[in-house]
């Protein structure tokens, strides 16, 4: 019996110039098969202009359970947003 095939995560760029977006995963033994399987599974209706595949084992994820603590440093820095600032009346194009 063949052992489990490798799992690959699939990222699809829907149009030239846009970012690649995670679409799901597929099983494949090598990179060419991974690309071809991803094409068959995720782009049957012209969903893509480019596909990336990467072995799932190489994805490092933060823990959703710890997300509050993990993202805490950015919560109290409202001055990073443009709406934080008061603009003089009548100022335009800013």
């Amino acid at each position: 019996m063949a052992e489990n095939a490798t799992v690959w995560e699939v990222f699809i760029q829907s149009k030239n110039g846009l970012a690649h977006k995670h679409a799901g995963n597929i099983h494949a033994n090598d990179k060419v098969m991974a690309l071809e399987n991803a094409r068959e599974l995720y782009t049957r209706r012209n969903e893509g202009s480019c596909i990336w595949v990467v072995k799932s084992e190489y994805i490092i994820s933060s823990e959703t359970e710890d997300s509050e603590a993990f993202f805490d440093p950015s919560n109290d820095k409202m001055y990073r947003h443009p709406t934080f600032y008061t603009m003089p009346d009548g100022a335009k194009h800013i």
């Binding site: 019996m1 063949a2 052992e3 095939a5 033994n29």
Partner: peptide, 14 residues
């Protein structure tokens, strides 16, 4: 099964 085995052997060889 032979297809799965062949794909695996090919990947290993590469």
């Amino acid at each position: 099964e032979w297809v799965r085995n062949a794909a695996k052997a090919y990947a290993k060889k590469q």
